[in-house]
Design a protein around this nucleic acid. Sequence first.
DNA 1: CATGAATGAGCGTTCATTCAT
DNA 2: GATGAATGAACGCTCATTCAT
Lengths: 219, 219, 219, 219
Amino acid sequence: MARVPMAPLVAAATTDRGARGEKRQQILEAATRVFASRGYHGARVSDIAREAGIAYGLVYHYFRNKDEILDTIFAERWGAFVDVVDEVAAGSQPASEKLRQLAALVLFAYRRRPDWVKVLVFEIQRSSRFSEPEQIEAVGRLFRAVARIVRDGQEAGELRGDLDANLVCLAFIGALETMITSQVLGVMRLPESSQSADDRTVGDVVELFLGGLAVRGRS
Amino acid sequence: MARVPMAPLVAAATTDRGARGEKRQQILEAATRVFASRGYHGARVSDIAREAGIAYGLVYHYFRNKDEILDTIFAERWGAFVDVVDEVAAGSQPASEKLRQLAALVLFAYRRRPDWVKVLVFEIQRSSRFSEPEQIEAVGRLFRAVARIVRDGQEAGELRGDLDANLVCLAFIGALETMITSQVLGVMRLPESSQSADDRTVGDVVELFLGGLAVRGRS
Amino acid sequence: MARVPMAPLVAAATTDRGARGEKRQQILEAATRVFASRGYHGARVSDIAREAGIAYGLVYHYFRNKDEILDTIFAERWGAFVDVVDEVAAGSQPASEKLRQLAALVLFAYRRRPDWVKVLVFEIQRSSRFSEPEQIEAVGRLFRAVARIVRDGQEAGELRGDLDANLVCLAFIGALETMITSQVLGVMRLPESSQSADDRTVGDVVELFLGGLAVRGRS
Amino acid sequence: MARVPMAPLVAAATTDRGARGEKRQQILEAATRVFASRGYHGARVSDIAREAGIAYGLVYHYFRNKDEILDTIFAERWGAFVDVVDEVAAGSQPASEKLRQLAALVLFAYRRRPDWVKVLVFEIQRSSRFSEPEQIEAVGRLFRAVARIVRDGQEAGELRGDLDANLVCLAFIGALETMITSQVLGVMRLPESSQSADDRTVGDVVELFLGGLAVRGRS
DNA sequence: CATGAATGAGCGTTCATTCAT
DNA sequence: GATGAATGAACGCTCATTCAT
């Protein structure tokens, strides 16, 4: 079972930026926390500044406006996420393993950085900017990567070829997203969220998609 | 294949309300259109009034405030939707058929009333009110109904019992939601959205969940 | 000596507007006072609202923004002014009489509505909008009207034809403007500003332009 | 025809200031350009710094604040201008010649340093500081110098004594100012602005004020 | 001297909500 | 019921000014 490089997902992007980059990052992290807890619209720029421990106006040294903060979070975090997915998709392991890794990726990210995931899943897609071509394209990147996993599996004869790859891809992503959502909202508890429970959940969701729900009779 | 009573999903709820009810309904429908096209936060009360063809302040005769409009839409539409799902879940047909009906229900609703679905899927879950217990509970009703379908199927020996019913339920709902989302955003086109294409999509998604992706060897 | 219809210059433009027009006018008059005393940039919208005795936000029912208030004042007042000048220019009296009327017009307007004149002379021309084609054109209308007076006088043989009409026009307008400016600033007192003093001033400035400064010797 | 020392009008005031003075001057020149092109209010301190090619905060080593920059420009430029006017006024040439020199002075300054003139004419008089006694007094200096030219001419019997010298002075200054303004705005084109055209304009405006517009009959 | 990050008061604008008619 | 004028709190953004280095 190949290892997936998850580090980029949870490492604050502070690599060699110097002081300027640090403060910028401070703002992004603060904004992420604030957006996650009050929502984009409910978050005041002053909240972000206070959370970041900086003066109001300084936010505007680093970002043109509030929108740009959200856009930046999206671009950096989503980009890092899809990069990892791309890496997974490009691997040579079986599709089943790739799907397992993808599921693990999502749950792992949520466990380690729930705020980031909340913002990506809830705030971005709700912001008015979500309908802009740039964002659509970013989402498209993920979809294409996942669809590629499915298609490769089909072509390799590992996965059934009679199901539309796009549909499968949407279903799988949707399943993962809803699992996270339900965690966030606490609307329906999956088994307690722990390392081992996550492993179990990952195993189950992959088994569900691969093996299907139907009982296999000897029929 | 039992018929599902889909009418409540798409009928404007005008039953015996008298004049007051009609104008109220006008506002709700107008609000739905406006929310669907500009989002809840982007929608001004004046936009709703104009769309409904009534005077500005009249909105406040029928609703305490803007929030209440969204809440009402949610309560009425979501309630009608879950009622139908409950009905399906309570039926005696096999689980596979129930899942098929559920999938058809969702796609049918979107085809007939895309605005309603957009508002339910995008706006409600994004509104700050979504975290309120009342709303959580409403979503819980849907989850429980779907989980019941799964559980009943497992107990009847039709579905595998080794997968957590809640997880399966979340996955199925998530799959359907993401399909709709991708239609709305046009981010990934499924086969053309037509009656027959929908039928095909419904069949595929159910087959995906029941039969699984894995190729069946004779093994 | 023909009478000039000065009424339009000093009549608040309230003709049959109904309640809506009245409040709008209230705002314009208040804004004129505030602009005149603190300048456009120094005037806060809240100052205007307070001066008009209305609520802050109401200003935005009647005007899209602060700029539009200034634009409106300019359009209405300047337009009325140039209309009168046009009328004078179109008359059949001698050019000398027309210039006399023009001078009287300007001083009369200042005496009756110093705030209006201050705003027209000081604020408009200083606002960034002054370089917009629309405003330039409005100023051009005045210049053309005055140039016409001069040109007609030259063609009628009443005025010397060897001086460029545009130059004469600019000089005459400039002379009047500077007289007003000096009044406003108190930088150089002309004879006390009274009805009879104004008459004297009007007479002098016209005599200056017609007769010239040079002493007429028998030579 | 006596020569007028126009050099001070167009020489950057760099006399023996050392390094400090040079950078200070750089800022003033940059500020003049920026004020001329965007107006005082539209000019940001950062614009000035960028235009001067220096760091943001350095401006505040040389000037207490933005106002002081404008004040300094005014004091230095206006002072130099009025000094020359004073010199002209103190001369022994006829008043007509003095007026000719004054007109030439103004047009010459505009031709050589349009930015300076724009700032003096447009920005200063519009700044809120224009109503401060200091500035009023500075303007008064000019007026008094010009009025002195007129008065001396009257006393010498060269100019008519029946016209108020102040009024004549205002009219003459206003005429010159408006000529410049019309050039700046392009609202009414005088003959092409060239050396010879300026000479012609100077000649005309002086002839206008001396000889008057009226046709001289043999009467 | 020089830099530019940091500060925060100030203001224009929006828009949900109220209320007089 | 119906209208839309009136209200004012709230908030994003600007930018002059200060200050640590």
